[in-house]
Nucleic acid binder design. Sequence first.
DNA 1: CACTTTCCTTGACTCGTTCAAGAGAAGCAG
DNA 2: CTGCTTCTCTTGAACGAGTCAAGGAAAGTG
Lengths: 158, 158
Amino acid sequence: MNGTKQEHDEDAAAALRQTSLRVTKQRVAVLDAVRVHPHTDTETVIRSVRESLPAVSHQAVYDSLHTLTEVGLLRCIKPSGSVARYERRIGDNHHHLVCRSCSLIVDVDCTIGQAPCLTPSHDAGFVIDQAEVTFWGLCPDCTAAGAQRTGDDQFSAV
Amino acid sequence: MNGTKQEHDEDAAAALRQTSLRVTKQRVAVLDAVRVHPHTDTETVIRSVRESLPAVSHQAVYDSLHTLTEVGLLRCIKPSGSVARYERRIGDNHHHLVCRSCSLIVDVDCTIGQAPCLTPSHDAGFVIDQAEVTFWGLCPDCTAAGAQRTGDDQFSAV
DNA sequence: CACTTTCCTTGACTCGTTCAAGAGAAGCAG
DNA sequence: CTGCTTCTCTTGAACGAGTCAAGGAAAGTG
């Protein structure tokens, strides 16, 4: 998780080659942006990428995020009331804590072993491939600030 | 869960009165629409409501869904890649099976007792009020049709 | 019935995201 | 290194779910 930017860029390039995607500076920068800002939204990725590549179009970032998600280099999460967010920590079935007030997202590992609640009581004939667990609440800062489901969360699930 | 439409309307009216919301025909119709079509989206609610009240504005439906969700008569769920959907089954901490192909949503009860994975391994200081579990997969129909994450799902979490 | 307060209608608008066409670069063969 | 093919990026317009705001209508109250 630590190393020079160049090392990370080489890792990113290698990961791209493994998926037979072309290695472009835009994609490397997107991977880097998500590494630096975990659970970041597209807007922030765009700003972050433009620090090193001022001319990237927003579309390139959208495309990259899509493609990288498709090949499994990124994971996309979209909690209710929040825009799409991306992370590079994939394949370990971890879950998320989401703050109802400020939308802060924090990783949590599974409560019970590797794949916790992956067995619903009945599967209704579904072929299930993933169980996604989201914990809703208030982050420490918002708790301290006395937040009460403020902002864009009045619409989230009970 | 069964009874005449009028009986349901009276139940809806009573529920509204208990929350000190005004009983309007729009709200009653919205509650009825969600009862008849569980896990329905706003679009469908609007169409459904207009069968009995042709002149309702989309805004009235949006407002009603908001308000009813806020007071706890409805629950709003927004799986990734899907628009907002509503249900009347609330307060029992059940979860959802979502089809990656056709977005069909089916209720599932908790695997383990009442509130299953409600304890993350560490809570990062969050005050957690809810654990939401979503099972992703393919519904029987889409499995039979050989669906492979088609449509608007190529963007969903891994 | 009259009055107050809440709710609905109308219509414009925002924002995240997507579409489409053409220019540009990555990778490969020679 | 060079040219070719194919994939990717830029540009700019468009879409759709959802929201905002102002005024008129209806629910509840006495």
